[in-house]
Design a protein around this nucleic acid. Structure first.
Length: 557
DNA sequence: GATTTCACGTA
DNA sequence: CGTACGTGAAATCC
């Protein structure tokens, strides 16, 4: 069978084997093909690609494919059922209401299992007991062309079952964003972030010294850094890398500190010269160990791109995460993120995203009215009759579940001014406290954890409180992540620029130098479009701050 | 050798 | 008694 007439947006499932042979499946049949056929179909028909996980997209992205839309079975599973694990056996079991503890495994662990894989037809992926066969899920799906087609057809069937679990239009939209985010992650991991290695090294050198040529030289540098601190406490043998020893030293000097965290030591700067020297040492040590020459060597390619692994949704509220320091690079190193020759960087971040999202998902008309202002906290402060900083702290405290601190009076003001939003937060918190799972606006199930049996009442109370804060925060942070993904994917679809970094509420794109301003305008348009699709008819206004620069650090924010 | 603790960077 | 993540060094647990 060759490619039949495929409609735009029609579900077409694919599975790709180790030799990059492709099994295709649609509702009407399956066929064997190769990677170029995927590119052709994309160009001619633009189907919605279905796959078990974004790993399938790897070879396609590497081959230069830019695919418009997809249905990522694993991503949709994480959305509907929560948690992080989303391998085919688990996805299948969840959709068929089968117990997960009877999922067959491969190898020794399964020796004791009854009704093993040997029963029935090995070429049939579904076992008599309803589970997927371990021989298939363990890699047997790619054994030959027939199986690839079968595996693709199974993914298509699973996508259909998942579709049946979609409860609202918002959930349906999230299915698209979550799937697309996984594809974007593959592209981000492949493309990398432009980073000027020379600039990075020139930033690092003054902090930790020149690149050591030998291990001995590295050791000598370490000792020199240590000596800058130890000279203030002559005669003391202290391993600065051992917090317990540092604490003992400080206690011996009369500083009664419970731990050696920087923010705890900061008040004592000036009381003893060793404090300031140690804090400076900590900063340098962080650069040396985590963001030093070895970090550059291991993560920056010969093409000057910093590459790390990306995940489309973390285990909690569903934000995107990245490794290799992409999400926690110290601000001091940001000047090294530079547009390549003939290109510019376009940076955009969502302004006050969490309170705006709260206004939308809670349906609080008064808070929604406040979002019409560029600065949401200004009308909130006016309404509460407090200074702006007080209003801001109060709103953040309400969203994060803070109970200590000085936000008390203003919090009461929020209760009467924005009762619907506050009730939404309280309801989430109560669900969490009770140990009940919560579901975000986009339909992500956020699982709670039980209080272990046998803990005393104090511990149980603090666990419940922690769950309450977690649930309350997840409802806001999770919905914000959903809007952010919708925005990023709209930008990906509408703008010619390439996304090089996603940072929770911030997008960084690289575009040809002459197109920067057009991309900047597109970012604003895409936000309106994404927000309208994310929450149809919501009166809430979202705003983005956009700048066209050549280095990341030149953008304000 | 794997897991936990401490610490700190980002949002 | 704000949340989440990733990372690395040392301590701790097998």
């Amino acid at each position: 069978m060759t490619a039949p007439g495929i409609a735009r947006g029609e579900l077409v499932a694919i599975a790709i084997g180790p030799a990059l042979d492709v099994g295709f499946a649609t509702a009407t049949g399956s066929w064997a093909g190769a990677l170029p056929e995927v590119l052709t179909l994309e160009a001619e028909c633009r189907p919605r690609w279905v796959w078990w996980s974004a790993a399938t997209a790897g070879p396609l992205v590497a081959a230069g494919a830019v695919l418009a839309t997809c249905w990522d079975v694993a991503a949709v599973h994480r959305l509907i059922f929560g948690g992080w694990h989303a391998d085919p056996a688990l996805v299948w079991a969840a959709l068929h209401d089968l117990p997960t503890d009877t999922i067959p495994g491969l190898g020794q662990l399964d020796l004791l299992a009854p009704a093993g894989d040997d029963s029935g037809d090995l070429d049939e992926p579904v076992r008599p007991d309803g589970h997927l066969r371990a021989e298939w899920t363990g890699g047997g799906w790619s054994r030959d062309s027939q199986r690839l087609q079968r595996w693709a057809a199974l993914a298509l069937r699973v996508a259909g079952l998942q579709r049946g679990r979609i409860a609202t239009p918002a959930h349906a939209a999230a299915v698209g964003s979550e799937s697309g985010a996984e594809l974007l992650c593959v592209e981000l991991a492949h493309g990398g972030l432009p980073l000027d290695r020379g600039v990075a090294e020139r930033l690092i050198t003054p902090m930790i010294g020149p690149r050591p040529a030998t291990p001995d030289e590295a050791e000598a540098q370490r000792r020199r850094r240590d000596e800058l601190v130890l000279q203030h406490v002559p005669g003391r043998e202290v391993d600065l890398r051992n917090p317990a020893q540092v604490k003992a030293l400080l206690v011996g000097l009369g500083f009664d500190v419970p731990d050696t965290r920087s923010w705890r030591l900061e008040p004592f700067v000036g009381a003893h010269p060793v404090i300031e020297a140690f804090l400076a040492w900590r900063k340098a040590e962080r650069i040396a160990t985590t963001y030093g020459y070895s970090w550059l060597d291991e993560n920056v390619g010969a093409d000057g791109r910093l590459r790390g692994p990306w995940t489309g949704s973390d285990g909690a509220a569903g934000r995107m995460t990245a490794g290799a320091g992409l999400h926690n690079m110290p601000a001091e190193l940001r000047p090294a993120v530079v547009a390549e020759p003939g290109q510019v960087l376009v940076r955009a971040d969502l302004g006050q995203i969490e309170p705006r999202v709260l206004a939308a998902v809670s349906g609080d008309a008064a808070l929604a009215a406040a979002t019409l202002d560029d600065d949401l906290y200004a009308p909130v402060a006016a309404r509460l009759r407090v200074e702006r900083p007080v209003a801001k702290v109060a709103v953040l405290a309400a969203m994060y579940g803070q109970t200590s601190g000085t936000a008390g009076e203003a919090l009461k003001g929020l209760e009467s001014a924005y009762p619907t939003a506050m009730q939404y937060l309280r309801a989430a918190s109560e669900e969490g406290r009770a140990g009940r799972d919560v579901r975000t606006y986009g339909g992500r199930l956020v699982r709670m954890w039980p209080t272990p049996a046998g803990v005393d009442e104090t511990a149980a109370r603090s666990l419940a409180a922690a769950r309450g804060r977690f649930a309350r925060n997840a409802m806001v942070q999770g919905a914000a992540a959903e809007l952010f993904k919708a925005w990023a994917l709209t930008v990906r679809a509408r703008s010619g620029a390439r996304i090089v970094l996603c940072l929770h509420d911030e997008l960084l794109l690289q575009a040809p130098a002459g197109e920067g301003e057009e991309v900047a305008r597109a970012l604003h348009r895409c936000l309106d479009e994404a927000a309208a699709r994310w929450f149809r008819g919501s009166p809430v206004r979202f705003v983005a701050d956009v700048s066209v620069v050549s280095r990341w650090s030149d953008a304000k924010g």
